[in-house]
């Protein structure tokens, strides 16, 4: 028996080592490939997700439903308190609604007086949340609309109220939304009364940080934060949330969107603005053709 064992060890050990080595080499190779040519591997990842996740739809829907029923059942215990609270809030909301309606009318009248033309209305596609990121290190959701529905990378997504994230990674039938809370998320924002520009940076906590703010003294807790539209990525003036301070004094944003209940998300179709390409013709009068090969620069110098 002893000889048998040693013989098998002699034979199997190197084969095993080779196997482990090969597996490790392949995995490291994939990782290095991803590090070098990230977009291509990410597209592969989107394709794999596209194949894999919708197949489990039949199972995901009932499981999610059951879990939600369980959590809803627990919230029934607090239903009386909740009901009272909602009534109180409804009263306040009614007052606000009146104010909003009056302001809207006034706003429309003023716009009409000024003959102001606003941006054309944004249209949107609505998608259903199919899956989340599956790990606490990434905050993203998978929607059931993809390149088939004309979704393009970089579009903004909202729930009914506030900004939720942006599209990053589109498969044929699915697309991934990187939420504002993700540690990779960076969004240009404006803080409302003071009108300062800043960057909203996620850090995997529920309230993202405000960075690159010029004068923090002008900002107080509760100020409105909206998207600024800088860089042409997002449409401007989408509601993001309110400013809050953590005990370290750092500025964070309480998000307006209800992240506990993301179910249907709006994807805003944003069209890039028309670029203005010929600046010269506005400034110079149209000159008659000059006889002789005279360079344009001299003409400019003369004029």
């Amino acid at each position: 028996m002893a000889t048998e064992k040693s013989a098998s060890e002699l034979y199997f050990r190197p084969v095993r080592r080779l196997l482990v080595g090969l597996t490790l080499a392949v995995l490291v190779g994939i990782f290095i490939l991803w590090r070098i040519d990230s977009p291509r591997v990410e597209r592969l990842r989107a394709d794999i997700t596209d194949r894999f996740v919708p197949n489990f739809d039949w199972m995901m829907a009932p499981a999610t439903g059951a879990a939600n029923i369980a959590s809803d059942f627990q919230s029934y215990q607090k239903i009386y308190e909740q009901n009272q609270e909602l009534r109180r809030e409804l009263q306040q909301m009614k007052a606000w609604r009146e104010a909003a309606l009056q302001l809207e009318q006034e706003n429309a009248r003023l716009l009409d007086l000024n003959n102001l033309r606003l941006d054309p209305k944004l249209t949107h596609v609505t998608g259903v949340v199919m899956a989340d990121s599956g790990s606490p290190f990434r905050q993203s959701v998978l929607l059931n609309v993809g390149s088939r529905d004309g979704i393009i990378d970089g579009w903004a997504t909202m729930d009914g109220i506030g900004l939720v994230g942006r599209i990053s990674g589109v498969g044929r039938n699915t697309s991934r939304v990187i939420l504002l809370t993700d540690s990779h998320s960076r969004i240009p924002v404006t803080i409302q009364p003071s009108g300062q520009r800043a960057i909203l940076a996620g850090d995997n906590a529920a309230t993202p940080l405000v960075e690159f703010l010029e004068s923090p003294d002008l900002v107080r807790a509760g100020d409105r934060v909206v998207s600024s539209g800088d860089g042409g990525i997002f449409p401007a003036d989408l509601l993001v949330g309110q400013v809050a301070f953590d005990p370290d004094g750092r500025m964070r944003v309480r998000l307006a969107a209800d992240y506990e209940r993301l179910k249907f998300l709006r994807i805003l179709r944003s069209r890039p603005r028309e670029p203005i390409q010929d600046p010269g013709s506005l400034l110079l009068p149209v000159l008659p053709p000059v006889s002789g090969p005279q360079p344009l620069t001299e003409e400019l110098a003369d004029g």
Binding site: A63, T64, A205, A206, D246
Partner: peptide, 25 residues
């Protein structure tokens, strides 16, 4: 993996957020 992918945990981890923020959400 499929159970982890179920869209149940959409908001960030509460314990982590609270440790980060220093106050209960």
């Amino acid at each position: 993996v499929v159970i982890q992918l179920l869209p149940l945990q959409l908001s960030p981890i509460r314990l982590f957020s609270e440790l980060r923020l220093g106050f209960p959400l």
